[in-house]
């Protein structure tokens, strides 16, 4: 960081030097820290992704792009595709659940009730992520409450295989990220002037038309912000598919973990990390371009 103040008014040389020192003192430590422990590691991953794994898992300093070529192997492409689909499915389910929920809260007249409802959506969110995921492992287990109720009521004769499936992963993801969808949606819907809805029905729009032509377009900033906030972290999810999924529900996060801790192919794992970061940065750029800045 070159800390040269951009002075708007002419400053005396000494005053200017004092300001430079202040900036260095305030920004300097963090700038150095993040350069060393963030930017530098980022560069290392980037460099690693172009190297080779030796026979014994050691690093071979031979520049190549084979790691990125290997990504196009059907096995890895299918994992990428699955991560994308599961993250998208999670986003859609969150949107469908959260929209009516946020709409309902936004129209509650009593401010205290409204705040209480919002806090209630946050409470489970304050607990450890592992424990929240573990809870679903208990509930969806073959001898868990859901199967038990279904068996006792005679709806099924054999326990359903719920745990270790794509279904379990999506349930876990929705549970983990729903608040990220509710809050921006609420913020967007709350700002809408509801007399516009009345105007629509005065003009003989039915409920569906009023929703489609008035409410939904006006709440679009919230829809986009919420979708990105849910999509980004679920794309890189690791704990949820690891605890609730099985061998057939591997996502990018699990693949990266496997390359680093099991197969010890660090260059290939690095290539996948770089890809994941690029996908996330792409999504973030869309978010900012669509006016996410205001939220």
């Amino acid at each position: 960081m070159t800390a040269v103040p951009v002075s708007k008014i002419e400053l005396k040389p000494t005053r200017r030097r004092v300001e430079t020192l202040q900036i260095l003192g305030l920004i300097g430590p963090t700038a150095l820290y993040l350069l060393l422990f963030f930017v530098f590691p980022l560069l290392i991953v980037f460099v690693y992704s172009f190297l080779k794994r030796g026979v014994y898992g050691q690093l071979v300093w031979e520049f190549n792009v084979l790691n990125y070529v290997r990504v196009f192997d059907t096995l890895y492409l299918s994992i990428l595709w699955r991560s994308f689909v599961l993250a998208l499915l999670n986003t859609l389910v969150c949107l469908v659940l959260a929209y009516p929920f946020a709409y309902y809260i936004a129209r509650v007249e009593n401010a205290r009730t409204r705040n209480l409802l919002l806090v209630l959506i946050m409470v489970p969110f304050w607990t450890n992520f592992l424990i929240r995921t573990y809870a679903w492992r208990v509930i969806l287990a073959n001898d868990g409450p859901i199967n038990l109720i279904l068996l006792n009521t005679g709806l099924i004769s054999q326990p359903l295989q719920l745990i270790f499936t794509n279904f379990a992963v999506v349930v876990g993801l929705v549970y983990g990220y729903l608040p990220f969808m509710v809050l921006p949606l609420y913020a967007a819907i709350e700002r809408i002037d509801f007399s516009l809805m009345e105007a629509a029905s005065d003009l003989y729009a039915n409920g569906w038309q009023a929703f489609r032509k008035v409410l939904f377009p006006l709440s679009m900033p919230g829809v986009i912000a919420g979708s990105i906030l849910v999509f980004i972290p679920s794309l890189g999810a690791f704990v949820t598919p690891d605890l609730l999924g099985g061998a057939k529900t591997v996502m990018i996060g699990n693949l990266i973990q496997g390359q680093f801790l099991t197969s010890r192919d660090w260059p290939f794992g690095s290539a996948f990390s770089v890809l994941l970061m690029l996908m996330v940065l792409g999504a973030t750029l869309i978010y900012f371009r669509k006016g996410g800045r205001t939220l």
Binding site: F37, F38, V39, Y48, I232, I252, G253, M277
Partner: peptide
């Protein structure tokens, strides 16, 4: 500086974890 300050929040956990391990 601004982007360097925001990036650690945006980047997925797993990517952050991997890069720090390598480092």
């Amino acid at each position: 500086m601004d982007s360097m300050l925001y990036l650690p929040i945006i980047i997925p956990d797993i990517a952050m974890a991997v890069m720090l391990l390598l480092f």
